[in-house]
Design a protein around this nucleic acid. Structure first.
Lengths: 91, 91
DNA sequence: TTTGAATATTTAAATGTTTCGATGTTTCGT
DNA sequence: ACGAAACATCGAAACATTTAAATATTCAAA
């Protein structure tokens, strides 16, 4: 994983709202609906949409349309690659 | 590690200059001098000082004064805690 | 003890991020 | 087809970050 990608993922993770979103994947089943995120965060719908976009743009979340609903899945592979890059910093 | 701490470390990692600093620890011995970082990055001294401060404030780097020089050591424990928090996101 | 080298701080400009209200788009029910 | 629900986008305000020039601090060495 190159440094630009590490930067992008780190930036996506640098907000407690987005961290809270990612943590919901453990509590619920393995997918999360957009509407559930709106309930979770104390923010307006456009703000939530913005945060989800950051996570999707960083490839941490994979969006799947289901009619007019939107379902997200955690991209474990990218998360693992990111973690591997961090582990690689250690000597 | 609480979410505020994860946010802070993520933000410290969300810049390619700071990522490059951390990567130098593998290439050199296990410590890095401030002056070496000035040579490494194509930035003015105050900018480098700013980036090093971000890493120190996030506890990723431990500063040690040596006369008028400043030596940094990578804080592997905090890095490990951060990685553990990320691993914890996985289901 | 003065000088100079190494690092930090301050200030300010440019740019990026977060948030919300308003509005737009898509798609499901009726 | 129409209205409403779910989500996205736009525009703007508030705030944070990045960077450099100027200046300050700290400390070793002469």
């Amino acid at each position: 994983m190159d440094n630009k990608k590490i930067e992008k993922i780190s930036r996506a993770l640098s907000d407690t709202n987005r961290i809270a979103i990612l943590q919901q994947f453990k509590k619920r089943k393995d997918c999360l609906y957009c509407a559930e995120v709106n309930d979770l965060l104390d923010l307006t719908q456009p703000s939530v949409s913005h945060h989800l976009k950051q996570l999707v743009d960083a490839d941490l979340l994979l969006p799947q349309k289901e009619g007019r609903n939107l379902k997200y899945v955690l991209n474990q592979e990218v998360l693992d690659e990111y973690i591997a890059s961090l582990n690689d910093l250690k000597s």
